[in-house]
């Protein structure tokens, strides 16, 4: 489903990804943990072409990320082709990034209407259903500014799901939330995982990773330090860096 091989990425002179390789099978949930500045978010953004990587290869659903292969040549993708690839990958941001000038329902419908040229009338039913699925059936006509952070993030998840993505990326989806609102967002993500969605989740929620993830990856200084079953990586970390991080997070 997803494979990354030896990904490198620098911002100026700072190398933020120093050879990251990772595989995620269909239906699997992979959690990416690590201290801030370790390159987790950058790696996630590379998958969705929001950042370009400098070296290495990535595949999503058998398709090369960033390039089109013909024979022995790799052609860099154009804007339209990149947009096409992105439409099959859902992304949820730390800051929600809902469109403030559109209601919850319009936010959910925006992708299919603009990108897939779907008729708003035919979409209405499905959009309402998606809002129901994230527990916001009664907030369809609210603007983002009228919703709490947790509600906004759930709308953002519904917006991503509206495109029927094959893979969902979560970039610290609960980090900007008040503590009492974290649970409602994690519940939606838990449901999604149970429904068989392939997910890559950058998170600081150790409990969520332990409970929901099939694989946990620990990242530090641009490399994957440790990968494996969450119970193993989180319960019995082999690496000094992992132990250090976990002791701070769980303290």
């Amino acid at each position: 489903m997803f494979e990354a091989r030896d990904i490198h990425k620098s911002f100026g002179h700072v190398e933020v990804l120093r050879g990251v390789s990772m595989t995620v099978r269909r239906g699997e949930v992979a959690c990416l943990l690590g201290p801030s500045g370790s390159g987790k978010s950058t790696f996630l953004r590379c998958i969705n072409h929001l950042e370009k990587f400098d070296a290495g290869r990535m595949w999503v659903d058998g398709e090369l990320v960033g390039y089109r292969q013909s024979g022995r040549r790799l052609h860099e993708l154009h804007d339209r082709e990149i947009a096409q690839r992105r439409s099959r990958i859902g992304m949820v941001f730390q800051q929600f990034n809902l469109f403030p000038h559109r209601t919850a329902l319009q936010n959910v419908m925006e992708g299919p209407v603009v990108v897939k040229r779907a008729k708003p009338r035919e979409l209405m039913e499905e959009a309402h259903q998606l809002l129901r699925r994230v527990g916001l059936a009664d907030k369809a006509h609210h603007y983002p500014s009228q919703l709490s952070g947790g509600q906004q993030q759930r709308v953002a998840i519904a917006r991503a799901l509206a495109m029927h993505p094959a893979l969902m990326l979560f970039d610290e989806p609960t980090s900007a939330l008040d503590p009492e609102l974290v649970g409602e967002v994690l519940d939606v993500m838990r449901d999604l995982a149970a429904g068989g969605m392939t997910m890559i989740v950058v998170t600081h929620e150790i409990g969520f990773a332990r409970e929901v993830a099939d694989v946990a990856h620990f990242m530090a200084d641009g490399v994957l330090v440790e990968s494996g079953l969450p119970a193993e990586v989180l319960g019995n970390p082999q690496h000094e860096r992992t132990r250090n991080f976990l002791s701070k997070v769980l303290a």
Binding site: N48, H49, L50, D79, R80, A83, Q84, R86, S87, R88, I89, G90, M91, F93, Q95, N97, L98, F99, P100, H101, E110, G111, V114, V115, A156, R159, A160, A162, M163
Partner: peptide, 27 residues
């Protein structure tokens, strides 16, 4: 308009011009 808005538009598969017309310019 915050950068995240354009990224949110791109992430659901909009092209640069769609992002401009539907997301950035209205705001």
């Amino acid at each position: 308009v915050p950068r995240g808005q354009a990224e949110a538009g791109q992430a659901i598969g909009m092209t640069r011009s769609e992002v401009m017309r539907r997301v950035v310019l209205p705001q």
